[in-house]
Simulated scan of single mutants.
Amino acid sequence: MAVRSEIVHCYEQIATSISAMLALARAKEWGRLPELESRCAVVVERLKEIQPLASLEPAQRDMVLCLLERIRTEQAELSGLIKPQLDDLIRRMDSLNHQKNLGKAYGLAH
């Protein structure tokens, strides 16, 4: 029973972290996202270790399915908020790289 409740607890942790990440993304507080994403990754790794070892009771399975739906929905919104930021960052990096290459080509200090 301990492993079963740990599985539910892991999904609860992931759902809570994703919700927090979504709130941060909505507030454009990008700097705090990596820490929460790292926490999610640790919990996912733990799930990989314990999940194959246990089958959930029906009530626990229903709870996990509900949490998974919440995670999927919020993850989709989170991705939609993050993608434009990543695209902008890539554009800026390309521009800086282009300026650096021009500087090298024309012997300008950077």
Results as ranks from 00 to 15, higher is better:
R91W: 09
A105Y: 04
S95I: 07
E69F: 04
M21L: 14
P58K: 01
P34G: 02
A20S: 11
A76Y: 05
L53T: 11
I82W: 00
Q75D: 06
Q85L: 09
K100T: 14
K83M: 02
R26I: 07
E37W: 07
L68W: 07
G103S: 09
L108F: 13
I90A: 01
L33D: 03
K100H: 15
A27W: 01
E45L: 06
D88I: 12
E77T: 04
R70F: 10
L33G: 02
L47K: 09
D88E: 14
K83H: 05
K28I: 00
K28R: 15
T73F: 09
R91P: 03
D87Q: 14
C40H: 08
V3E: 14
R26F: 08
Q60L: 12
P84L: 06
Q85C: 03
I14Q: 03
L24D: 02
L81A: 06
D94C: 14
E29Y: 06
L89I: 13
R70T: 02
Y11E: 00
E77C: 04
K28T: 00
R92W: 02
C40V: 15
N101H: 11
S19P: 10
R26A: 09
I82K: 03
I90T: 09
I90P: 01
S17T: 06
E29Q: 11
E12L: 12
V44I: 15
S17D: 15
S38Y: 04
A23V: 07
E77L: 03
D87L: 14
M1Q: 12
A27I: 08
Q51D: 01
I82A: 09
K48S: 08
A23R: 05
L81R: 07
D88G: 13
D94W: 05
L36M: 10
G80D: 01
H110M: 13
E6M: 01
Q51G: 11
H9D: 14
P58Q: 03
M63R: 05
R4G: 12
M63G: 01
I18K: 01
